[in-house]
Amino acid sequence: MRRVLILGGTAEARALAARLTDVHVVSSLAGRVSDPRLPVGEVHIGGFGGAGGLATWLREHRIDRLVDATHPFAERMSASAARASDLAGVPLLALRRPGWDEEDGDTWQRVSSLAAAAGALPDGARVFLTTGRRSIPLFAARTDAWFLARSVDPPEPPVPSNVHVLLARGPYTLDGERALIREHRLDVLVTKDSGGAMTRAKLTAAREAGIPVVMVERPRLPDGVRTTDDVGAAAAWAQG
């Protein structure tokens, strides 16, 4: 029986695991979320020890196909997957959901990094920060601004005084996003171009409220990696 390793705890990774009924599937989660949504089938939680460790794991577990279905901003893991694929001789496919596109009425400023996003904020802004708990210290250095920082798990203490942490897990509703913008008097949204429907409502709410969006662009995948945004195509490749 063909053996497939899926990297990532994304919705696409879970959907792919559910589609692969005629192969032995192992899904690997990084373990950074305390209570992750688990896919069907066998699950590996934790790292592999870099590209070399992943290559060894692929060989020892006789993996035939490797699918990188990590978050679009998991740049280090994607680089390790590409290198491990080369080292172990295991074919690799990257499964990535499409990014978001601007619509009529949007005011977006695209930036290349989180640091650039922090620098792009207007003086004294009240910011809806949705870039993950690890980015909070970088933005909190903007002491002139105030932040509503949403994350699944709590950030490492201490939390800066200009940051209010909201613990929540998507999918998020449009009514809920509207309420947050209104109640906290938010005037700018900072987000990563993660794509997908689970967190898109914040973009619609920002457009309706007439507030600008600072959009952090995705890192590029390693050169030469085959890519698809379709779960069905990824399943056909893994089983083919």
Rank of each mutant, 00 (worst) to 15 (best):
R3W: 01
D229T: 14
R96K: 11
M215P: 01
D187S: 09
R182W: 11
V213E: 07
H164N: 04
E183H: 12
S34R: 13
V225C: 11
A17I: 07
R226K: 04
E156A: 13
T56W: 03
E60K: 03
A236T: 14
M1K: 13
T10C: 08
T107S: 10
L20K: 13
P158M: 13
G196N: 10
R218P: 06
S194D: 01
D223T: 10
M198V: 14
T70H: 00
W237D: 02
Q109E: 15
P91L: 08
P72A: 04
G47S: 01
G31F: 06
L38C: 09
D153N: 12
E75L: 06
V225K: 10
W146T: 14
I45W: 07
P160I: 07
R182H: 13
L92E: 04
R65M: 09
D175V: 00
G89E: 00
R220A: 15
R133I: 03
L174F: 02
K192S: 01
I211S: 03
S34C: 04
D144N: 09
L138D: 08
A82T: 06
P39A: 12
V231C: 04
S112G: 15
L121P: 06
R62V: 02
V152P: 05
P160H: 10
S28Q: 00
E217K: 11
A69H: 03
R218W: 11
A141N: 11
G47A: 00
P98R: 00
N162V: 05
S113T: 11
A238S: 14
D229Q: 11
V214F: 11
T56C: 00
T173R: 05
D230G: 05
A125C: 11
F128Q: 12
E183F: 03
S135T: 13
I45D: 05
E103L: 12
V26R: 08
R14Q: 10
A201H: 06
H44P: 01
G89F: 03
A116I: 00
L38N: 05
A120W: 13
V188K: 03
D22R: 14
T107K: 04
L16P: 12
L167G: 04
G8F: 10
Y172L: 00
G41N: 02
E177H: 00
G195T: 09
E103F: 06
F147G: 13
A179K: 14
